[in-house]
Design a protein around this nucleic acid. Structure first.
Lengths: 176, 176
DNA sequence: CAATAATTCTAATACCAATTAGAATCTAAC
DNA sequence: GTTAGATTCTAATTGGTATTAGAATTATTG
C-alpha cells in the first residue's frame, strides 16, 4: 500500500483493514507508523540485495565484468518487477518519508550500492569500461534505467528475461 | 514543495505561508488543492517539453538521429536539473496524486512522449538502432536514466554539459 | 472623492489522522 | 477447567486537514 499510494496517503485504518484488524490493534505489533514503514523499507532493500546475491552465486568464483553486470541486472530487475509491492516502496518514497525512517534504511541501501560500486571497479580493471567514462556515473545510469522500469512495466508485455537481455546489451555496448 | 514533500505531505497552510498568505486566501486563486496541483504538473511538463523544443530548433531541418538524440538528452536533462522544483514534481508524484489530476496531466505528457517516439522511428529508419533492439524499450531506458538523475544529482559535482556528454555517448554506443 | 472590483483575512465547519489506555477476547499450558 | 499470556477491540484524545462564508482590506477605475 505504501508503494502504491505513498507513505502519507496510506492510513493505519486502511492497513489494519487489509490485515482484518482495527487501527489500534496495530500498536501491539509496531511502535508507530514510522516503525512499520521502517520495517517495510528494510525488507524491501534486503529482498533486492538477496535476489542479486543469488544471481552472483551462480557464477564462477572469478567472474568477468561482462557476466557480473548481466547477473546484477537480472537480479535487480527480477526483484523489482516480480515484487513491485516491496521494491517500489524503496523507489517511490524518496523525499516524503520522515527522516528518522530514511536514516534506518540508509545503512542497508549503502551496503547494497557498495556491491555495485565494486562491480564497476572490476569493469575498470578489465578496461571493459571506456577510459573516458566515469564508472560511477555509468552505474547511476544503469540503476536509473532499471529502477524506472517499475514505472512503465506491464506484466502482459515482454518477459523479464527478454528485458534483461536488452538492458544488458545496451549497457555493455554503451560503456565500451 | 510538492516536489520535495509530495502532494499529501504539503499542506495548504504551508503553501500559503510561502506566498505570504493565509490558507483560506488560496481559494480566491484556485478552486481546490487538486486544481493547484494540476496547474503545477501542467507547467512542469510544459517546461520540459519547451526546453527540448529549443534544443531541437537549433538543429538543421533534416537532423540525424545522432544529433537529435543529443539534443533531446540535453534539453530533458537541463530542464530537470536546472529546475528540479518544477520537474521533480512530475517524476516523484507518480502514484500518489488524485486520479482526476493525473488525467489532466496525462494529455500533455502523451504529447511530449510522442516526440520521443518519433525520434526513435528516425533511429530505426537510419538503421542506427541495432535491428534486434526494441526501439521503444530503448526509449524507456534513456528516459529512465535521465529522470533518475534528479534523485542523485548534486549541483556541486559534474557540470550538466559533462553529464550530457556521458549520457549521449553511452546511449549512442548502446543502441548500435 | 466615490464606488466598484480584486484580494486577503477571520473564524467556523466537518472530517480524518495517529496514538493511547483499558476492557474484552482468544489461545495455550498445566 | 482454570489461569496466564497474547492479541484484538473500543472509545476517547489530540491535533491536523481542506474547505467555506462573510467581513475586512486593498487596488483600480470613473
Amino acid at each position: 500500500m505504501f508503494s502504491r499510494q505513498g507513505y502519507q496517503s496510506t492510513s493505519l485504518k486502511e492497513i489494519a483493514a487489509a490485515a482484518d484488524m482495527k487501527a489500534g490493534s496495530l500498536y501491539y505489533h509496531f511502535a508507530s507508523k514510522e516503525a512499520l514503514m521502517a520495517e517495510v523499507l528494510d525488507r524491501s532493500i534486503q529482498f533486492i540485495s538477496d535476489t542479486v546475491a543469488e544471481e552472483i552465486e551462480e557464477l564462477e568464483e572469478n567472474y568477468t565484468f561482462e557476466s557480473g553486470l548481466r547477473a546484477f541486472i537480472k537480479g535487480h530487475l527480477s526483484a523489482i518487477l516480480k515484487h513491485p509491492d516491496y521494491t517500489t516502496t524503496t523507489i517511490r518514497n524518496n523525499g516524503q518519508i520522515p527522516k528518522a525512517v530514511q536514516v534506518i534504511a540508509h545503512t542497508k541501501r549503502e551496503h547494497y550500492e557498495k556491491q555495485w560500486r565494486q562491480l564497476m571497479v572490476l569493469g575498470r580493471q578489465e578496461s571493459f569500461i571506456r577510459p573516458d567514462l566515469d564508472e560511477q556515473l555509468f552505474r547511476l545510469m544503469v540503476l536509473g534505467s532499471l529502477n524506472w522500469s517499475s514505472v512503465w512495466y506491464n506484466p502482459k508485455g515482454q518477459s523479464i528475461d527478454s528485458l534483461v537481455k536488452h538492458f544488458t546489451q545496451v549497457f555493455l555496448n554503451g560503456c565500451r
